[in-house]
């Protein structure tokens, strides 16, 4: 049937166009922030990647330095395995950001420092943590 054929062509056409569209956007995103490569801190340091990247790791204990004049300005050391990297971030920090927090940062590496414009924290360990220390704290609190 003629109309049936026409429909098949139309539908195939639509699907092809969309697949090309998705493929095109996937390789030429309009916004540079649309994509980031997820790499390990070690690889970033070895290859000195200066593209937009995403890193994951832990905030090194005691490494958070908040500027005395601008509380939004902060730097901290990101630890992934044994590799460390200083990260600078100058925007509102998520509430769960603290020593030992698991974070994901997105930004660019330049001369030994990672300039992040996105900082995400992963779930606070507190809620999946060991009941033992939690109960101990409560127990001591009850005593005093």
């Amino acid at each position: 049937m003629n109309s049936n054929k026409k429909f098949t062509i139309m539908i195939t056409g639509v699907i092809t166009v969309v697949i090309f569209w998705i493929g095109w956007v996937s390789s030429n995103p309009k916004d540079e922030k649309a994509m980031a490569t997820f790499v390990s801190v070690e690889k970033l340091l070895n290859d000195k990647i200066n593209k937009r990247t995403k890193l994951g790791g832990l905030v090194k204990d005691g490494s958070i330095i908040i500027s005395k004049t601008n509380y939004l300005d902060c730097s901290f050391v990101l630890k992934e395995g044994n590799t460390e990297l200083t990260v600078k971030y100058d925007r509102t920090r998520p509430d769960l950001f603290k020593d030992g927090a698991e974070v994901i940062v997105t930004g660019q590496y330049l001369d030994g420092t990672f300039y992040a414009d996105e900082l995400q924290t992963k779930c606070a360990s507190r809620y999946e943590g060991d009941l033992r220390d939690e109960s101990n704290y409560k127990l001591t609190e009850i005593k005093t």
Binding site: W21, I22, V25, S26, P29, K30, D31, K33, A34, M35, A36, T37, F38, V39, K54
Partner: peptide, 24 residues
């Protein structure tokens, strides 16, 4: 699934953000 796909195909894990989804 782009991060998963890109890692399988090209070996690098590429994450896509809201601008990507909005553009498409």
């Amino acid at each position: 699934l782009f991060p998963v796909i890109s890692e399988a195909v090209r070996g690098t894990k590429i994450t896509v953000g809201p601008p990507f989804f909005n553009q498409i």
